[in-house]
Design a binder for these strands. Structure first.
Lengths: 345, 345
DNA sequence: CTGAAAGCGCTAACAA
DNA sequence: TTGTTAGCGCTTTCAG
């Protein structure tokens, strides 16, 4: 079938913006072009080749919005990071951002795009529902429960394709992926005590569920093994954290001999302040962190910490979410953390 | 005007999924509902209130896809991170991910959503064009030029709303925001030399433009001041980097007395390896990093480094992009890096 | 294997 | 101030 294209390679057409434009050039209907480009149905091989060739020549890409609207699915997964107490909360950011990188890779590999939001629940009560019902995403991954456990629970009742990174609590309704924080706390306290510490401090805000569980685990062990432990809340802005830790240590470094930091980031600050005070680690003060960020191995002395496998976590989140997208009711995935003994305890 | 709603609060309707459903309940037309919900035109206050009330009661959210399709704009900015040489390139990830966090905040503040992609140019030649022309984003931010300078240049000719984080090269066509890497390299080398080093090594791959410029700046200074400098390429996977640095140092630590690490992340590895070798820093070896990541102040000794202001960078990227979205042809924004003297040099 | 036709849900002229 | 109308660009029955 003769078309202008065939007759004259230099034939100039208006830019091909729609499937209909392309159809006209190819001398077929829009439906056929759609099918051919989708690679999907049974389109005549010759027809398909021709359509593909023309598409290539005109550098044509179908409009995704139209496609998504029509098909009622977006191919986009929302990833939302609730910033709990403070806009400035950056303390777990390194961890979350690393997780995010893995999520991006994992989702890409499965053919999904990723839409990212950082939200401040205090300023926007409706943060989760708004995102879910925006019509722009097929499912949502929540990175960190922050102090929003209840809100997440409410949503979980009516919305299947959601998976949350965080802590698991007996009987909860939302599907969560995360380390067993309580166990992690136990491992940390056990290690501190095994290294000779008896008077422990937990450095970190116990408001967020994950941190609370870490503290609870440490408490279990301390109680059982006849050691003491107190929680020392730190605020979440990086600069204040350093100062608060410094102030605490200045007054209390004789009272305690072991510190369990709620995160590696806190542990780094802590290590620094200890060194400023001239305290030998681990001789005078034992220290255990949580996360095992890549740099944990780089401090001096290298940080003993509780390892969360970030890549495995990302994989789990995506895997569970895709199954939920298929209507499956999945269980939570609790990953055992692992004690990594280096030199601070 | 009486509607079922008004007559009986318990009246049960089918779920309100579309603006038309809502219009029927409110007894107005879809157009009016659209206007009312957009808050935009001059809709009668009473009518608006009624519509808003019903929307709230039925928990209605307009479908974004439909809206976007119709309005031909998405309200979404694409952020793409090209992973240059290696899927495993994680070495600048900490920096990029921190930048990403700031971008998310900055874009949210301006009412945009953020769509994230990490791509591997080697596997997908068409990575940038595909994203831009996907119809899903209004503009694009490219985080890092990687080794894709030329491809970005090509795109820049035909596509205005793109801003790139990276290095500026004389006469380039794409709009870039970034530190003056060459100046940063100079500052680093000057500091090393001022601290007494004469035989320098640059640790890092000089393939990526930003790193190449840092090296070039250091070379300028070394040449001018009668010092030597050699580039020691490291690969980009974190585990190999450590080993490579170790191998290099094992053989060469007597040959050199100053190291300029292409990034703080590399500097951390380097510091660790030096300590393993029992070399005193800065006495036997001076070290300067680049980026000033938050943890740079936490190492022991604290890292002397070249500071890039990440928050200001994010702000600049978004600001320029939004102006380009308005059709403005913006200049690049080159931010002066700053030497932060701590204790490694 | 292909074409015709009917929307997906919303917005924006244009009238009234 | 509101209703009517005509699509945005694509996909998918349903016929042929």
């Amino acid at each position: 079938m003769a078309t202008p294209e065939d007759q004259d390679p230099n034939y100039v057409t208006a830019p091909v913006r729609t499937i209909a434009d392309l159809a006209k050039i190819a001398g077929v209907s829009a439906g056929t072009v759609s099918r051919a480009l989708a690679g999907n149905s049974l389109v005549n091989a010759k027809t398909r080749e021709k359509i593909e060739r023309i598409a290539r020549e005109h550098d044509f890409r179908p409009n995704q919005m139209a496609s998504k609207l029509r098909r009622q699915k977006t191919g986009v997964i929302g990833v939302v990071i609730p910033l709990g107490h403070d806009r400035q909360q950056q303390i777990s950011d390194t961890f979350f951002m690393t997780l995010l990188g893995h999520l991006a890779d994992e989702l890409t590999a499965r053919g999904y795009d990723l839409m990212l939001r950082r939200v401040i629940p205090q300023q926007d009560k409706d943060w989760l529902d708004r995102f879910i019902r925006s019509g722009m995403i097929d499912g949502v991954l929540v990175i960190g429960q922050s102090n929003q456990f209840e809100r997440i629970e409410e949503i979980a009742d009516g919305y299947l394709p959601m998976v949350v990174w965080g802590n698991h609590k007996e009987g909860q309704r939302h599907c969560v992926v995360g380390a067993d924080n309580r166990l992690g706390g136990k491992l940390a306290a056990e290690r501190l005590i095994a290294a000779g510490a008896r008077r422990l401090a937990f450095l970190g805000d116990t408001g967020p569920f994950e941190f609370a569980a870490r503290f609870a685990g440490a408490q279990d062990v301390a109680t059982r093994m006849g050691a003491s432990i107190e929680a020392v809340p730190t605020h979440l802005t990086p600069d204040r954290t350093g100062k608060e830790i410094a102030a605490f240590l200045a007054e209390n470094h004789d009272e305690i001999d072991g510190i369990f930091a709620a995160s590696d980031t806190i542990a780094f600050s802590c290590l620094r302040e200890l060194q400023k005070l001239g305290m030998a680690v681990p001789e005078q003060m034992k220290l255990v962190g949580f996360d095992d960020l890549p740099i944990a191995a780089q401090t001096l002395p290298p940080l003993t910490t509780i390892r969360q496998d970030i890549a495995a976590g990302a994989h789990g989140l995506v895997d569970l979410l895709l199954r939920r997208l298929n209507g499956e009711e999945t269980e939570s995935l609790i990953m055992p953390p692992r004690l990594v003994i280096r030199e601070t305890a």
